[in-house]
């Protein structure tokens, strides 16, 4: 790394050491789960010891008994479909809201944002009835609907804020060239929305992926469960048999962690974009 010399600064060295230790404490629960997932039942009794070999039976139990492939498929289905819908309807709604300054549009904007303050439990019981009456009980579509709805406020916030930074001249020029409203939107505005789209995905993906409450309410058939409730049931069935529990935890946590490690830059940008003044 070049010839840059670092002066030895005792204060910074001590701070560095403390932070290294703190980061170990922060990661310890995850490391502990991963290491313990390779322990045999006997080894599990000695909680401080490391596994003696790469024992994989916990993974076999976790994979088969939890019906992991089905859980994973359902989670992917719900997440991908919800995300696609939210990107389309969110960007469509944000365009007129950010390009009009009338009272109606200001109201609509604030109305959408008000969703951030409405707790899920406040409408949970009538929603349960509504989902039942719509015939959506035990369908993955119910999870998609709830996920899309929960993502609407932050998505409108991000897209509206972003479109306002795009100079109107581009759209006016397109109009002069004979582009209609929709053509301008699709040809000029949408291609410019890529950075905002990344933020919207980063901010919404984990809450959808980790959603526990709506599958708890709306899904009772095992084959339709998503990962959170599937794992919850799996854990409930084996209260202190921790080997398979750690194995399924490891299988589940590596997915978002791998995604994060490969796209870190976008995660940091995404969550700070969500923190801009609304």
């Amino acid at each position: 790394m070049g010839k840059k010399k670092f002066r030895v600064n005792p204060k910074m060295t001590i701070l560095g050491a403390i932070m290294l230790f703190a980061s170990f404490v922060s990661l310890f629960p995850i490391l502990y789960a991963i290491l313990s997932s390779f322990k045999t039942k006997v080894e599990m009794g000695d909680v401080l010891a490391l596994p003696s070999s790469l024992y994989l039976e916990n993974y076999q139990v976790a994979w088969e008994r939890s019906d992991f492939p089905a859980l994973l498929t359902n989670s992917l289905f719900v997440t991908v479909l919800s995300m696609s819908i939210i990107l389309v309807i969110g960007s469509l709604a944000a365009y007129p809201i950010s390009r009009n300054s009338g009272k109606l549009y200001v109201f609509l904007y604030l109305f959408f944002l008000s969703g951030m303050m409405v707790p899920f439990q406040s409408g949970m019981i009538p929603l349960y009835g509504l989902i039942r009456n719509l015939g959506l009980m035990n369908t993955r579509l119910s999870l998609v609907l709830v996920a899309v709805n929960a993502s609407i406020p932050i998505t409108i916030l991000i897209f509206t804020g972003f479109i306002k930074t795009i100079p109107r001249e581009l759209e006016e020029a397109a109009k002069i060239d004979g582009c209609g409203y929709m053509k301008t939107l699709f040809r000029i505005v949408f291609p410019l929305l890529v950075p905002a789209t990344v933020s919207v995905i980063i901010l919404n993906i984990l809450p959808i992926w980790n959603d526990f409450m709506s599958p708890l309410l709306f899904i009772s058939r095992a084959e339709l469960r998503t990962l959170p409730v599937g794992i919850y049931m799996f854990i409930g069935d084996r209260s202190s048999d921790f080997g398979p529990i750690f194995a399924i935890s490891t299988l589940t946590l590596i997915i978002p962690v791998a995604l994060f490690l490969s796209l870190q830059k976008y995660f940091y940008k995404g969550i700070t974009a969500g923190a801009v003044k609304g």
């Binding site: 995850i30 992926w209 526990f212 959170p228 409730v229 794992i231 750690f246 935890s249 589940t252 946590l253």
Partner: peptide, 10 residues
């Protein structure tokens, strides 16, 4: 990044 179910399990 961890879901509450995993945090609870661990």
């Amino acid at each position: 990044l961890l879901s509450p179910v995993i945090v609870s399990a661990i």
